[in-house]
Each structure stands twice: as structure tokens, then as C-alpha cells.
Simulated assay, not measured.
Amino acid sequence: MTDLTRDAAEVTDWWRRHGLPGLFDVHVHFMAPPVQRAVWEVFDSAGPKLGRPWPIRYRLPDEERVEMLRAMGVRRFSALPYAHKPGVATYLNDWARDFAARVPESLWSATFYPEPSAVEYVAELIGAGVEVFKVHVQVGEFHLHDPLLDPVWGLLEDAGTPVVVHVGSGPVPNEFTGPETLRRVLARYPRLSVIVAHLGAPEYGEFLELAQTHERVRLDTTMVFTEFFSQMSTYPPALLPRLADLGDRILLGSDFPSIPYPYLHQLESLERLGFGEHWLRSVCWDNGWSLFGAGR
């Protein structure tokens, strides 16, 4: 048995043991091959936005990665491209549209960047049925409250289309990260459907508060509580009761394929919190299904 075959078998055993129909992972990445290679080169170099070596366990071609997710029983998963500069979002979105068309389990994912054309291509994508957007302010180096994004947030609020935002200051902060930029957006667009990546690490408390005070703000678990991530940002024990109480706003995320450990480790890390079967079922399946449903 190969390591990857073992990974798939162990993940399947895990969700079956918990009586789940499979897994719903809202934080998975698939990108156009040239872009994916460039992203992995950044990981390989332990670049300044990572701050440490970051080996990639699931470095496989797209088709093999899709089959890996299927073998693990990840019934629905995102693709989450993210634009790092002006002028690239349309290329990323065109590729992601094609990917969604050929992979029915995937959430049709897209991205945007603060540029004059953003409102037009976001409106077109919403009208066509895109299911989720992703923005990464640490990589893109922009503020969520950039005036060029005002009409985009208005469109997204009206449509209810979720957007996954990497806005926490982990793994390496810069002037664009932190809760204040999202707080300013939510003050103007309080019904915006937001999924805060990595539970907002390391500003866990501030992002937890935003989820508690805004009905449509959710948090994903991506990498949090794993041994690798805890070396960079440990979740404060004092906040665990609040996280347990907020089980209906927490979504499973993994960052597959660019993780340095078996997929199972994220699941076991959540199980070790001891929040109970209902919390695990909500996070690993029910909440994603409630937000996105069966999809296209």
C-alpha cells in the first residue's frame, strides 16, 4: 500500500467512524498549472510570506489530486484561485470555470482584485452561478476596504455569494492583514457572506467576535490545531469554549494539496478538541452542505 492509498483509506475510516456521509472541504486549491507551479516554487523556497520550510505532501497533477479527494471521500471541495496583482483575475477565473465544468464535486470558485474592471467580471460570474470567491490580502497586498472594491462588496452582499478571505496575519503579517480591514468592510456591508480562512490566525479572538456579531460571517479550520501550524500560531485555550459554542459557523478547511502532513491529521486535530460528535458533524459536513448544498 502506498502512502497516498493509506491516506485515503485512513480518512475514509475516520468519517465513517463518525457516521458522516463524507467530508465537505471549503478550503482546497486548484489553479491553472503555470500558476500552481509558481505557487509551489514559493513554498519550496520558504519565501518571506511563509517564513519557514513548507513541504508539500500532495504535489500531484490536477487529475490525480481530484481522484485523491474522491478516494478520501471529500464529496465537495473548492478550487479557490486568488489574484496576486491587477490583470490576472480574468485568466484565473476562466481556468477555474473550466475546472468546475469538468469536476462536478468542485465548488465553482473565482477571485477578484481591487481594479476598475472587478465589478464587471464579478457581476458576470455571480449572474452565471459562481459559488464562492477567494481573496488573499497577504499575497495580493491590498486592503479589503480599498475603494475599488466597494461596488464588489455590494454585489456580493446582495447575492449572498460567499467569499473566503485570508485576512489574518498568519503566517507572516504585513500592513494589509488583520481584523480591522474586514471590520471596516462589515460596517458598511453587514450582510456580507464571509468565510475567514485559518480561523483568522493569529488574531483568533477578534475574528471570532466578528463571527459572533455578524450572522453571515463564518470561520474555516484550515491547518489550525495541527502540529505544524501550532508551531507558528497556537490557538488560545481560553477561546476554546467560544469556538465550541460557535459550531454552526465553523467550516472544515484543509489547504489541500499544499499541506506538509497527511490529510487525516487535520481531522484528528479537530477530534482531539473534544467538542463532541455534533460539533464534528456540523463542521465536517452539515455547515458546508447548509451553505452550499449539492451545487450545480
Rank of each mutant, 00 (worst) to 15 (best):
T2N: 15
L4C: 11
E10S: 11
D13K: 12
W15I: 00
L20H: 08
P21Y: 02
F24Q: 00
V35L: 09
R37A: 15
V39D: 05
D44V: 09
G47M: 09
K49E: 14
K49C: 11
Y58N: 10
V66N: 00
M72W: 07
G73T: 03
G73E: 07
A79K: 04
P81F: 09
G87I: 05
T90R: 15
V103T: 13
V103C: 03
S106F: 01
S109T: 08
S109V: 03
S109C: 08
A110P: 06
Y113F: 15
P116W: 07
S117Y: 11
V119L: 10
E120S: 14
Y121R: 03
L125Q: 01
L125R: 10
A128G: 07
V139R: 10
F142M: 02
H143Y: 13
L148C: 04
L149M: 00
P151T: 06
V152P: 06
W153I: 01
P171T: 05
P173R: 03
F176Q: 03
F176M: 04
L182W: 05
R183F: 00
R184V: 09
V185P: 09
A187H: 12
Y189M: 07
R191K: 15
L192S: 06
S193H: 13
V196N: 08
G200N: 04
E203H: 09
F207A: 07
Q212W: 06
E215D: 12
E215S: 12
E215R: 14
T222E: 02
F225T: 07
F225N: 11
S233T: 08
T234F: 02
A244C: 11
A244Y: 10
L246G: 03
E268A: 08
L270V: 04
E271N: 06
G274S: 09
H278L: 10
W279F: 13
D286H: 03
G288R: 01
